[in-house]
Design a protein around this nucleic acid. Structure first.
Length: 582
DNA sequence: TGACTGCGCGCC
DNA sequence: AGGGCGCGCAGTCA
């Protein structure tokens, strides 16, 4: 495979560095003698120069796909493969598998910033770097690096993408299982391409249907800042039943006082606490909270801001969550409420293929722990039912609560009570999450299957630990330190499973994207959420897309776990609108 | 006025 | 209940 590093220049041009193919299977390039050729490309010619080379489907090495790819997409250029230096740097730098590498042990630099700095002339470099770097990352090391670019030509240029790639590949090569990290870096990078492509293509969104749903539930669209009729009506009923004429039900504080004055035994305005009361205010108040939430999170203002020309374009943030899940920085795409899914509607003549992985996290746990008994249960379409049928628990509901409790770290209630039985029946699976929890309680780093590592606890965590172990420690110090330790243990317990599930999902997505590319009619991904994908496709190609989704799930399982005997079952639906799925 | 925090909600 | 998020609001403080 060809690898081409794109070095962007401040003037909008670039230099394309061709790398020599590596010795084995051509996966990793040979960087020992630098690039084999370096071709300058003028401003305005970059998209064409890249498009011309894309016919060979090289791996494009970019400093920051989120920054560089959207302009290429706008110019009609799509990339098949890439390596995102910024995202991969973050993984390699924190991975326990690369802890001894030069990249991991170096001081923080520009590649540790949340966004890559725009390229600027040398005399402006310093200010830009400081702007881009996280405030939490102290400055002294930066000065040396920045100075290095301007004055010390012999040392590594901190913004040199070829040198950065070399450092990353070197760190990965030194890991105990380099193949896993290579897969993770490839999957993360493909994710960056997909996120940009989905933002470019947009999710089909029927604004008229959205407006219809809002009118039906809230009444006509009010003037800006005014309450819709239905909410105003409910507010009046709430004021009457609490005998609080001036009450603003949007104010938690006012509401709490009014509730208590009316004799309700509540300590907060939480939904569950209110629901447990017997009082005429309960029904209208719960309805008010439900509708007020819809209005503020996904009302007309949201529609105006996020939907244009029939497309919803959230800003996906690849690697935005410590576990490797994606985040979004706008539009709230991670929480599209069920009430509005009818607005996600395929174009005329097109349809939506919606697929989600059934019980992904317990299946991932079964595979990564190589727990034979649990893998047996994970061979069918309904893992929870299989756990119940195997006799580990009494019912499907218990199985579900028990597994979620095991993965999330339940300490009380029904779920915790199921743990002894689960531990006895699935010792390897439960042992894996328990070990991750114990490691976290000790402040150690844990890692996913492919090698993404958890962050360390912060200074206050260690301080509490010190205080509890010190001479003058009292019972409160000890209790507090134990609580913090258990909290962090629950985080690391969940990290290994959620993070590995995110890796499976990334591989699924990447495998699906490659298959879609070969199908007619340009079916394309329009949505991805943790364990769920949506493809917008010409209606007559939907069956083939559904088949591709299934094949991709199988491929993802094999990529991560080899021929592991775990089935990654999917629920697949071919629908005109999202509310018809699942 | 703007930055920040906590609350409450809803998604996986 | 227990993990991970984003967002809008209200309240606080500078």
């Amino acid at each position: 495979m060809r690898w081409i590093v794109v070095e962007h220049r401040p003037d909008g041009g670039a230099v394309l560095h061709e790398l020599a193919p590596g010795p084995a299977r051509g996966e990793v390039p040979d960087l020992s003698h630098g690039p084999t050729a370096s071709v300058p490309v003028g401003p305005g010619e970059l998209a064409r120069a890249i498009a011309a080379r894309e016919v060979d489907r090289p791996r494009w090495v970019l400093d920051d796909v989120a920054l560089r790819y959207p302009p290429l997409l706008a110019a009609g250029v799509r990339l098949d493969r890439c390596h995102d230096l910024r995202l991969c740097h973050a993984i390699v730098r924190t991975s326990a598998a690369c802890a001894q590498s030069a990249l991991a042990t170096a001081p923080a630099g520009p590649w540790d910033a949340r966004h890559m700095p725009e390229p600027v002339a040398a005399d402006e470099v310093q200010a830009t770097l400081f702007d881009a770097l996280d405030a939490a990352d102290p400055a002294p090391e930066q000065q040396a690096l920045v100075g290095g670019r301007a004055t010390r030509g012999a040392e590594r240029d901190p913004l040199d993408p070829v040198a950065e790639l070399a450092a990353q590949l070197d760190a990965v090569a030194g890991a105990p299982q380099p193949g896993r990290l290579q897969l993770l870096l490839a999957a993360e990078s493909t994710g960056a391409l997909i996120a940009a492509e989905m933002a470019h293509d947009g999710m089909p969104w029927d604004a008229a249907e959205h407006d219809r749903v809002l009118r039906e539930l809230l009444g006509p669209r009010p003037a800006p800042g005014a309450r819709p009729a239905r909410l105003e009506e409910l507010a009046a009923r709430i004021r009457r039943s609490l005998d609080a004429p001036g009450l603003n039900p949007d104010s938690q504080q006012d509401l709490l006082h009014a509730l208590r004055r009316a004799g309700l035994d509540v300590a907060s305005t939480r939904k569950h606490e209110i629901a447990a009361q017997h009082h005429p205010v309960v029904a209208p108040l719960l309805e008010y909270k439900r509708l007020a939430r819809l209005l503020s999170a996904n009302g007309w203002a949201w529609l105006d801001t996020w939907v244009h020309a029939g497309r919803f374009r959230p800003d996906y943030v690849v690697g935005g969550v410590v576990t490797g899940r994606w985040a979004t920085s706008g539009g709230g795409a991670l929480q599209l409420p069920a009430q509005l899914r009818s607005a996600v509607r395929a174009d005329p003549g097109w349809t939506l293929v919606v697929a989600d992985a059934a019980q992904l996290e317990p299946r991932v746990l079964a595979a990564m722990s190589a727990d034979g008994a649990m893998a047996d249960a994970a061979r069918g379409a309904d893992l929870y039912q299989a756990l119940a049928d195997a006799g580990a628990v009494a019912s499907r509901t218990e199985a579900k609560y028990g597994m979620l409790g095991a993965i999330y770290g339940a300490t009380t209630g029904v779920s915790a009570a199921l743990m002894p039985r689960l531990t006895a029946t699935y010792p390897r699976a439960i042992g894996l999450v328990e070990a991750a929890a114990r490691a976290g309680e000790r402040g150690e780093v844990v890692s996913t299957w492919l090698g993404r590592s958890s962050p360390r606890p912060g200074p206050s965590w260690w301080a509490a630990r010190e205080a509890a172990a010190g001479e003058g420690a009292d019972a409160r110090d000890v209790t507090e330190a134990r609580r913090l330790a258990r909290d962090w243990g629950r985080f690391t317990r969940n990290f290994v499973v959620q993070g590995t599930a995110a890796e499976w999902a990334l591989c699924w997505l990447a495998a699906l994207r490659r298959r879609l590319r070969d199908l007619p009619g340009h079916p394309h991904l329009v949505f991805f959420l943790h364990d769920e994908v949506m493809v917008h496709t010409p209606a007559d190609g939907a069956d083939r897309v559904a088949q591709a989704v299934q094949e991709a799930a199988g491929e993802a399982g094999r990529l991560l776990f080899g021929a592991a005997p775990v089935e990654f079952a999917l629920d697949v639906a071919i629908v005109d609108s999202y509310d018809r799925a699942g």
